[in-house]
């Protein structure tokens, strides 16, 4: 099977969505295979339980299929699916913890994301230090800023799409992004010097 990734918002994708709404099983399969991997990766940020993430995605598509007659044909498919999955998972997480009576306040709205460095791209010492620094600063961002940065820079969503996914106003998205970027750009001289010294001594 060919898992091709059409450009987000391309007319091709719209067409598949319209055929899905018209009830064509081939379009269901195409839609699911196009988006499964990125939805799985997005969903995994909310829960470490792989089976739960897989089940949620499966449920998501079945629910959409069931109520396809009431869905709008004019949407950006990628962000719509991400928003729906996020809602669905949050809903089941809350009910799940209630059922097992072990609800902890931290369970509400987890967004766990880790960044890694692919070293074969790194050629110079300065690039190594910059990348390590950026990685560290990313991991220190508060949860909502992390999610905004992830959606904007690693999922290529625009402001309106992010506001749809995170269920906040576009203005809030801009604010969150601005704060995050400001923090990420701060040139932290002290740390730079320490890193440099450590490197000289190794």
């Amino acid at each position: 099977m060919d898992f091709s990734y059409p450009y987000p918002g391309s007319s091709d994708e719209k067409l598949v969505w319209q055929r899905f709404l018209a009830g064509q099983p081939e379009a269901f399969e195409k839609l699911m295979s196009t988006h499964f991997r990125s939805l799985f990766q997005y969903g995994s940020k909310f829960s470490k339980d792989k089976e739960f993430v897989k089940d949620s995605i499966q449920d998501l598509f079945l629910i959409l299929w069931e109520k396809r007659e009431n869905l709008s044909s004019d949407i950006v498919v990628k962000s719509y699916l991400m928003a729906s999955l996020r809602r669905l998972m949050h809903r089941s997480t809350t009910t799940r913890s209630r059922l097992f009576d072990n609800a902890s306040p931290e369970d509400e709205g987890v967004f766990e994301i880790e960044f890694s460095v692919e070293e074969h791209y790194i050629e110079s010492e300065s690039a190594f230090m910059l990348t390590e620094k950026v990685r560290k600063m990313l991991s220190e961002l508060p949860r909502r800023q992390k999610e905004v940065v992830y959606l904007k820079f690693f999922q290529d969503l625009d402001r309106n799409q992010i506001s749809e996914v995170m269920e906040v106003s576009p203005q809030t998205v801009s604010n969150l992004l601005q704060i995050a970027i400001k923090q990420l750009r701060t040139y932290w001289k002290a740390e730079f010097l320490i890193l440099l010294t450590i490197h000289l001594f190794i």
Binding site: M1, F3, P25, F28, E29, M32, S33, F36, R37, F40, Q41, S44, K50, V53, K54, I57, Q58, F61, L62, I113, E114, F115, S116, V117, E118, E119, Y121, I122, E123, S124, A127, L130, T131, V134, R135, L138, Y150, F154
Partner: peptide
Amino acid sequence: RQTVLALKVQDTEISSREIERIISKTV
């Protein structure tokens, strides 16, 4: 440029086979 290229989100792994299996089950 090197930083942009090297910095990746660490994604949970799932094989294409597994995706295929779930999709064919759902379809």
